[in-house]
Write a protein that binds this DNA or RNA. Sequence first.
DNA 1: CATTTCACCTGGTGGC
DNA 2: TGCCACCAGGTGAAAT
Length: 282
Amino acid sequence: MPEVETIARGVHERLRGDRIVEVWFSSYSQPFKTPPAQQASGLEGKTILGVRRVGKHIVCDLGELESDGAGNGSRSDGMLTAQWIVHLGMTGQLLVTTPDGPVAPHTHARLTLASGRELRFVDPRRFGRLEFRELKRDKSFTGPGSEPLTISPEAFADLFRGRRLAIKAALLNQTLLHGVGNIYADESLFRAGIRPRRMAGRLKRAELFRLHSALQEILNYAIELGGSSVSDYVDADGQRGFFQLEHRVYMRTGQPCLVCATPIRRILLAGRGTHFCPVCQR
DNA sequence: CATTTCACCTGGTGGC
DNA sequence: TGCCACCAGGTGAAAT
């Protein structure tokens, strides 16, 4: 999520007010939640009113530009009529480039803009998804769950009441909280001193409050550092993040715990690699 | 229903 | 060098 937030902010700063002139899509079907022809006809001619993160999704708010040319020099806000929703999956990138720049392998979308630049979607594993919503027909995108950065401690604790699954699995469930991924689930559980396998519904309220604040602190700090660059993550400018330097358990299997020097353990939980300190986390 | 497992993909790494 | 197993920021359909 810090990676998605960083990218959304970058694209917003660069492309707000720009207009989509022409659209190209690859011939693969997986990246398209809405058929590519429908996305293309919907996107072309629209103005980008703003770009923001909702959960792990990037929402581009689109509208028609009413001011034509000369008159009112500043961009009118325009009316919101459609949304382009980007999910980056594991390896997706959204890049703002010049049109002549080399096209990376696995480029699945190229949006030519009135400013002359391009917005490109690159995704080797094709786990990402592109969706187009016409707001006359579809409802505005709100995401599947609660926002981890703004949820109150009480509402956070209530999410887990009665749940008979591991706390880590619950943190990753996007219909409860949207935006928490594998890195930040492991890191927040470490900082809250909670074992990932503990049953969510059996955690004490004090433990859940600790987890709530650990999670918010970590997400905010990671956003400040531009996210974690594990392998190929880069922001809209192609820049890497730095939160990977702050990881205390994630991908540190066998290395000494930074608090107690016990080797970090790795287990499989909910199908995901899970890292924890057997001493610091109970 | 809630919860778990697995398929969907490419690419990098490390063992033999 | 090659071949193979395994692993990776995620999710949704199918199975339990």
